[in-house]
Amino acid sequence: MIADVQPTTTWYLILAAVVFGIGAVGVMIRRNPLVMFMCIELMLNAVNLSFVAFAKRLGDIGGQTAVFFVLVVAAAEVVVGLGIIVSILRRRPGATADDLADLKG
């Protein structure tokens, strides 16, 4: 009985849901913009995991293609986001998300 247990798609999806929830809570409670970015990466990885699990379950390679594009978009997003954070923190050192509530420089 125990030896027959194999991880099903539901296991992977539940793991992805938990990681997504941890990332969402991190975005809501952390104030350091860099850590908020890392939590967004956590959520993207959770979605990637569920994409690959569905790709295996359905026997369709299109899910892995979607993960490929998510990786590319995540790389571009990190580059632009870190550029914005660098330009903000260079002007106001130690700024948190609370200090950036207004759109004025």
Binding site: P7, T8, T10, L13, I14, G21, V25
Partner: peptide
């Protein structure tokens, strides 16, 4: 508030997955 919202997200997702699961292994 963040904890409640995070638990709500995870709970709803897991409920949806469990409700629609197919128990045969991969």
């Amino acid at each position: 508030l963040a904890g409640v919202l995070g638990l709500a997200i995870v709970g709803l997702l897991i409920a949806a997955f469990v409700a629609s699961r197919d128990t045969e292994p991969l």
